[in-house]
Each structure stands twice: as structure tokens, then as C-alpha cells.
Simulated scan of single mutants.
Amino acid sequence: MTDTQFSTTRRTVLGLTGAGTLAALAGCLGSVTVPAQADGNGNRAARTYRVTVANLTTGQPFTPPAVVAHQPSVELFSVGDPASDAIKELAENGNLTPLGELAESLTEVRGVAVAETPLVPTELPASEMFPYTTTLELETDSSGAYLSFVSMLIGTNDGFAGLDTVPLPERVNESRSYYAASYDAGTETNTELYEDMVPPAQALYGIDSGTDGTGTSNPDLAEDGVVTPHGGIVGDGDLDPEIYGWDDPVALVQVERTA
């Protein structure tokens, strides 16, 4: 895993401005797969998993989802606690670089995989180009027996879909299914305005509001909060809750051990 790989994903995701750039997004997004790290003796006891993530919402596209295999001591996020830098940047800006840096720095993280494209509900115009579901190959070892999943809810200020520290299947051909909920990172005020959202929000909705949006955090909107279940779209800004709102769960994550 390298910072370059994660930065490339960020640039292509956040580089959208208008529907005309969607084709470029499809061609430019790259996947990131990090194989299981060697154990303390330099050996590997590799396990391979097929992880399928499906967007269950009708109006919220996801950034390319990231899945992490890790030991139980790793916690990407926790309800009631402040969001880490990795979750803050993902939830506000769709930025995967801090997540990559976290994975590199922790030997307890045993494998990471990131999808190639955003996941777009079939009800939205961009679904003609992007799928609502994707399948990833995740490599880990017997010590990395837990899975976490995160993906930004693109049409929000700091919302994300998440699954925290669930067991991976033990036996080959064993599979498990998990539902993921929506969370508010508690790091940015929920204005629900396109000018405060990442540019892909408008592009994936097929809308041109006349504002560019932003892929960086705005200090004026900073919120010193904690991770909480997301309250959804309430209609205070540019988004109609009837179109862009959702009910939990927002994602289905299916995991099968293949080897």
C-alpha cells in the first residue's frame, strides 16, 4: 500500500464537476488491494475473502467502499467517541489517504481493499454508468480475523456508511452477511448545501446548482462532536429528503472465505 495509490483514488473521486466528467471517473478510478502482512517470523498464513458491498439506499451514492481486515484491537470508529482523522477525512471529503496511512502504521491491520468505482442507487441518473454493488478480494491471515467497512455518503456533509469489527468467516466456503448503518462523523455542521459537499454529489445526482462544491474541510463549519447514528436528510438545504434521504441499514456486506 502506498500514499500514491490512495491519493489517486481521492483525486479521481473528488475531481468531478458536472455530469460530463462521469465517463472520466469511470476510466480513472483505481482499486487498492493490500495483501496480508507477514507475521513476526516472516511467514504468512494467507486467507482470501470475497467481499460484496451493496448500496441499499435510493438516493445516496457511496464513494468507492473500503474494507479492512484487522485484529480486534483496531477500531476504525466508535459511536460516542470523536472521529479519527481517517474517518473525518473520509466522511467530509472522501479522502482515503489517512486511512491508507493508518493501515500502513498498524501491524494489527492485516489487509485492505478499496473498490474501483462509486456505488450509485439505480434510481439516480448516474446509475447508467456506475453499479450499486461491487465485489472485492481481501487478503489477510489468521490473526486478521475481523472486518470493518467504511464509505462516504456523498450527498452529506460528514456522513458515512460503516461496519465496525465483525467476525470474518473461519472455514473455506463459509459466508456471512452484515447490514451496515449510517453515521455522522460529528466533525462538520450538516448544512445540506451543495456548496459544502464534495463535487461528485451534484455530478452523480445529474444536477448543476451553479456552485462548485468543495473537497476540503471548511473551518467555519467545524463541529467538535462525536460519531453518532446519522439523522438523515432533514431538508434544511438543497436536498429533498423524499429523494435523497434514506432509512437504515444503508448497505449490505456479504463475506465469503474462498481460500
Rank of each mutant, 00 (worst) to 15 (best):
A23G: 12
S142P: 02
A201V: 14
G210K: 10
A19V: 14
T57F: 04
P35N: 02
G27R: 09
N173S: 11
S142G: 09
D240Y: 05
N43F: 14
V234C: 03
R47W: 02
P61T: 13
D158W: 01
S182H: 03
K88N: 09
A69S: 14
Q254W: 06
G162A: 07
S175Q: 14
V120H: 09
G59T: 08
P72S: 15
E192R: 03
Q37C: 01
D81F: 14
S148P: 03
L239W: 06
T133P: 13
V32L: 02
F77R: 05
M1K: 00
Q202N: 07
V255Q: 05
T135I: 00
Y179Q: 14
L163S: 01
L25F: 15
E256D: 01
A86R: 00
K88T: 06
S148K: 09
A115H: 10
S142R: 08
S73H: 00
L25Q: 11
T135R: 05
A203R: 11
Y132I: 12
G231Y: 15
Q60Y: 07
D212P: 00
P241M: 09
T33H: 10
T48H: 09
N190W: 03
T52G: 01
V34Q: 06
P229K: 00
N41R: 14
T21W: 13
A185C: 05
D224E: 08
V67G: 06
A201H: 04
R171D: 14
A115I: 04
T156A: 08
Y183G: 05
F62T: 15
G235D: 07
T216Y: 10
S151N: 06
V120F: 04
R11F: 04
L193Q: 12
A38I: 06
G155D: 15
F6A: 12
L252I: 03
L204N: 06
Y179E: 15
A251Q: 03
E101V: 10
D238G: 02
E89F: 10
Y183W: 11
E137I: 13
E128L: 10
R11S: 15
T107V: 14
D184A: 08
A222M: 06
T2L: 05
R50L: 04
D220F: 13
S84Q: 11
M129Y: 02
C28P: 11
R110P: 10
N173A: 04
G231D: 06
V74T: 06
S84A: 14
A115L: 05
I243K: 15
G80I: 03
T52D: 06
E174D: 07
G15N: 08
G231W: 12
G100A: 10
N41H: 08
V32S: 04
V226T: 13
N190M: 07
V112A: 09
A45P: 05
L56E: 11
A259N: 10
D240K: 01
V166M: 01
T107G: 11
G232L: 07
